[in-house]
Amino acid sequence: MLPEFELLMPRTLPEALEMMDESSKVMPLAGGTNLLVDLRGRLSRPQTLINIGGLDELRGVRVEDGYIVVGSAATIADLKRNALIAKHGQALRQAATVFANPLIRNRATIGGNLAYGSPAADAAPPLLVLGAEVELLSKDTRRTVPLEEFITGVRKTVRHPRELITAIRWPIPPEGSVGVFRKLGLRKADAISVLSIAVMLLHMDTGDCDQLRIALGAVAPTPIRAAAAEDLLDGGPLTPEVIAQAAQLASEATQAIGDIRGSAAYRKRVITALVQRLLTNLAKDTKEKKH
């Protein structure tokens, strides 16, 4: 059962920031799909929740100065059906499609997904390859933090208790970029990722790989970029040999742990196989597109 708590219902963003400023015992409530579960399990004991899920300022997806800007309270279901996301955030859209179940998708927000700081957050790998930043606002401060620096450990972020995530933004990817996302869960739906992978290919004119980004979820204390693998692939052709090597490097980048969903060894092994497969498919697709 839920413990008792006070629930504040701000009508505007400034009002919410005002409430956030008043005490450090407050906690924002967005979709509640992480928070309410933790409250039931007594893993989190805030005295006051501030419901930010209904704030218009935090909803919606828009284009602004060459960036895609997603309001932190946009739900996963919003992302799934949004045309801008379909075009400029392909991997994120795919992640939204395999996220939890329809009920949860209607409640869960992108801001909550990142703020919770889970290594298995499905929005994180796609946002990492998109080069996303997190916009943080408090009553008196505003700052933007690259997502890579935002999550610092299991359930740890750089967010100050008085700050709200207001938006997540990334530069509009160049025309022709391709993004993909794969997750492995123990069921086909309604499963937390045992591991997840996002890959994004920016520009592929010459058959060489101009820039390729790989991000991995649930295989380290935070979602990570596989930098060594990316470097290897940078600027070269996607040959089977290079792909195999990159997959190996990606796996080496992990610091997987074992938990109820899978052992460290399993995660490492499957990461290799899946990175290899995703890259092979990408190479094939881009070749086909050219012909």
Binding site: V37, L186, R187, K188, A189, D190, I192, I260
Partner: peptide, 25 residues
């Protein structure tokens, strides 16, 4: 349903990790 050596149910009773098969399976 696994218990650790302290006799604690590892899933904590949460269904997300108790894996009954769903319609998608």
């Amino acid at each position: 349903n696994a218990w650790n050596t302290d006799g604690q149910l590892i899933s904590g009773g949460y269904w997300i990790d108790s894996k009954t098969s769903g319609i998608s399976e």
